[in-house]
Design a protein around this nucleic acid. Structure first.
Length: 758
DNA sequence: TATTGAAGCATTTTT
DNA sequence: TGCTTCAATA
């Protein structure tokens, strides 16, 4: 008789769920029900094999994946048992371990976690102190080098041994300083969370033994995207019981640039000759026509050692559409129009649609197109919630309340709101603290208690600094006694953020940003269940570690909307209708990877990931010309499109093309040297003049005429009634200059501003 | 010290 | 193009 937890699973999936001993490697294709297998396996281990939830470790790629899995698991075995399984991303799991055991490394456990922005600030300060010019040595690339080293388990000492260039010399000096600074600030960066955990395990085997003994089963999702540190962690913790369960898809490996090593998988196989390898080949997500396209893209890969054939029994389905737009604006408008069309025809929710692109910068055109049509959208990435200035400011206050030695946060808000503590004073303070070898906070305390021998600042600056110190000290006194929500409330009472935001951004945007702060207060309510003194630290930790996809279907995103997302972030997600935009040389594959064959292959896999997100309908788009920071260039369609057999695609003409005589199109085509020039045939030549209609438009197409004239009366949602002063076409948009009585003269984009005629 | 304006520079992808 | 950074001024 089939066990209840195995019902509805295919043979391969059942095998994976029931493989309870020894090392297991599951090679899963896209849409093969990975999460389901993982969830059912955990439930099976607990219910059937009698493993205690506490003894299971499951690592996911995003917090969102962990949350979803925990929820499903709760339905299968009950919430409280699901809660006891150790589940999360490498970063969040390591953060929890370090809170508990970092004292073995001679560090305090109330560390703060620095995000990319904080890391950058530290780096800049270091360059300043080392007297290196930021122009000559880009703080970002120096930090990137350090980060890469940490991901390869290379600490300062090892790095020093491998220095081989002048740039490395510089990096080494910064690396040393950077580590010292983080230590002094009692901070860890993202990479430290992993690296310090490995250090902890290696320097203190007795600590590792505790964990290795505890975790009887170690499971890792998306194993193809693990880097060296992460895999080292897996090997350490899993060594106790040798029950590994690694699941992933080699063809979806898209994070090599972040240090991910496919070699991890190969080395694992070599180290464990008894490994069971289980494929999951049936795809439950997409229709056959979509999978055919995906398969043709991946079949053209150079390295085909790992090609798993995926199949589906959903034979029926629409052909994949290939669309050429005139430029990025038309691309966006067409997508928006198509969404409106399909939504009406098929009665779909906006949640069913996703637009995917290579770079975040591409989102803008889509946002504008959605706004002008009144379509709601959810932008994933870009500036995330916790990266917004106003949010980071509040968080910085909370951080120094928690840990006042966090110099980055302290300097961030010492002059927010403006207290006339300018750069000069700040540098004086910093220098003073450095000379005394104490933290800035300690220096402030010296100042306030009048114990300072020869303080570098006096008069009004000193007064302002002391005020700030007292503000923070006052809040610090409350931190253990107040709930997080109340603490934030007190902070907002003592620091007039609302006025500040209105002053800085004006009524409208100020109000919007204030909303964000209120939302933050809302979030803080989720920590009510914890003991009062734990609320702040846990909150700060999660703030640093949540990613944007994590919040995709929580909080205000509840209302339906079209998802705008990068291909990288789309991994693991699925949508009934997917638009893949900007399939052009230079964009996908991206210009930065174009001269490295390995990177090109990664770009190919990225496209594969994109195509396999679609359940029923897939559109692939490219534009005839594209504007990249000012300059507009003609494009070449992505080489990957050339790998797709033509009969798998339907050319979908853009509306206007219907009116265009065929001969005109042909004529125009042959007179376009840019498109056909060059020794090798470009991929575009595969498309020209063959199947389907040709180029939809002439580049010299007349822009449509302005529709507003001077003297017209209009109404704007915020400014009220006004009179048009002038109007001109800017690109494809109409820029209307309107005088609003009492509000001044505003320049508005007609597509954007939703003007009403009066 | 804060504010203003001009110049110059930048876009992969993220936990 | 849109933002950050730098320099000049009050």
């Amino acid at each position: 008789m089939t066990h209840p937890l195995l019902i509805g699973l295919n043979a391969q999936q059942q095998r994976a769920v029931q493989a309870i001993h020894g090392p297991v490697l599951v090679l899963a294709g896209p849409g093969s029900g990975k999460t389901r297998v993982l969830t059912h396996r955990i439930a099976y281990l607990i219910n059937e094999v009698g493993v205690r939830p506490y003894n299971i470790l499951a690592v996911t790629f995003t917090n969102k994946a962990a949350r979803e899995m925990r929820e499903r698991l709760g339905n299968l075995i009950g919430e409280s048992r699901a809660h006891d399984v150790m589940m999360g991303t490498f970063h969040s799991i390591c953060a929890r371990w370090l809170r508990r055991d970092i004292q073995h490394l001679q560090r305090a456990n109330d560390f703060v976690v620095y995000d990319a922005d904080d890391q950058q600030r530290v780096m800049k300060q270091i360059l300043r102190e080392l007297d290196l010019s930021e122009k000559q040595y880009n703080p970002r690339s120096i930090h990137a080098r350090i980060s890469a080293a940490k991901n390869e388990l290379i600490g300062v000492a090892e790095f020093a041994r491998s220095v081989s260039s002048y740039f490395d010399e510089i990096v080494l000096r910064c690396y040393e300083r950077y580590e010292k600074q983080l230590f002094a600030n009692n901070a860890l960066d993202f990479d430290d969370l992993l690296l310090k955990t490995v250090n902890l395990f290696e320097y203190h085997p007795e600590v590792l033994a505790r964990y290795a003994e505890r975790y009887v089963h170690v499971m890792v999702d998306e194993v193809q995207d693990t880097n060296r540190v992460q895999f080292s962690l897996v090997n350490h913790v899993g060594a106790g019981h040798n029950n590994y369960f690694l699941i992933g898809d080699i063809q979806q490996s898209i994070y090599a640039w972040r240090g991910a090593r496919l070699a991890n998988v190969r080395e694992f196989e070599e180290a464990h000759p008894d490994v069971q390898i289980i494929p999951l080949e049936q795809n439950y997500r997409s229709t056959q026509p979509i999978l055919d396209v995906a398969q043709s893209i991946i079949d053209a890969a150079h390295d085909r050692r790992h090609t798993t054939k995926i199949w589906t029994d959903q034979q029926e389905g629409d052909l994949v559409s290939l669309v050429e737009a005139y430029d990025h604006n038309e691309e966006a408008r067409w997508v928006a129009d198509e969404i409106m069309r399909i939504r009406g025809r098929d009665g779909r929710s906006l949640d069913d649609f996703a637009v995917m692109y290579r770079t975040n910068a591409q989102s803008r055109a889509f946002e504008e197109a959605m706004i002008s049509r009144g379509l709601r959208y959810k932008l994933v990435g870009g500036t995330r919630f916790y990266e917004r200035k106003e949010i980071k400011d509040i968080v910085a206050y909370l951080r120094i309340i928690h840990n006042p030695h966090d110099e980055v946060s302290l300097l961030r808000v010492i002059n927010v709101p403006g207290r006339s503590i300018g750069d000069r004073t700040q540098q004086e303070l910093l220098q003073w603290a450095r000379n005394l070898d104490i933290s800035i906070w300690d220096a402030l305390e010296l100042l306030v208690t009048n114990e300072a021998q020869n303080p570098p600042i006096g008069g009004r600056a000193r007064n302002a600094v002391e005020q700030f110190q007292k503000l923070v000290a006052g809040l610090r006194d409350l931190r253990h006694d107040l709930m997080l929500g109340e603490l934030i409330q007190r902070l907002l009472e003592r620091v007039p953020f609302q006025d500040l935001l209105v002053a800085e951004y004006g009524e409208e945007e100020g109000a919007e940003r204030w909303e964000n702060i209120l939302e933050l207060q809302n979030v803080s309510m989720e920590y009510l269940a914890l003991p009062t003194e734990d609320q702040l630290p846990r909150f700060l930790e999660e703030v640093a570690l949540v990613s944007d996809v994590d919040s995709l279907d929580t909080s205000k995103a509840r209302e339906p909307g079209v998802t705008l997302i990068t291909l990288h972030q789309a991994k693991g997600l699925e949508y009934p209708v997917v638009f893949l935009a900007g399939l052009e040389e230079g964009l996908l594959p991206h210009g930065r990877s174009i001269d490295d064959p390995e990177s090109i292959e990664e770009e190919r896999r990225l496209l594969y990931v994109g195509t396999t997100r679609a359940k029923q309908r897939l559109y692939m788009l490219y534009a005839f010309k594209r504007a990249t920071w000012g300059r507009t260039d003609l494009t070449i369609p992505s080489r990957f499109l050339g790998d797709i057999p033509k009969d798998l695609l339907q050319r979908t003409p853009i509306r206007e093309v219907k009116q265009m005589p065929v001969h005109a199109a042909t004529q125009w085509q042959s007179s376009t040297p840019q498109r056909t020039r060059g020794a090798q045939p470009s991929p575009s030549s595969m498309w020209s003049g063959t199947s389907g209609p040709a180029r939809p438009k002439r580049p010299e197409r007349e822009p449509s005429a302005a529709s507003y004239n001077a003297g017209d009366k209009v109404r704007h949602a915020n400014f009220g009634e006004g009179v048009v002063v002038s109007s001109k076409m800017v690109g494809d948009d109409e820029e209307v200059t309107v005088a609003f009585p009492g509000k001044g003269v505003k320049k508005l984009l007609a597509a954007f501003a939703k003007l009403e005629r009066v």
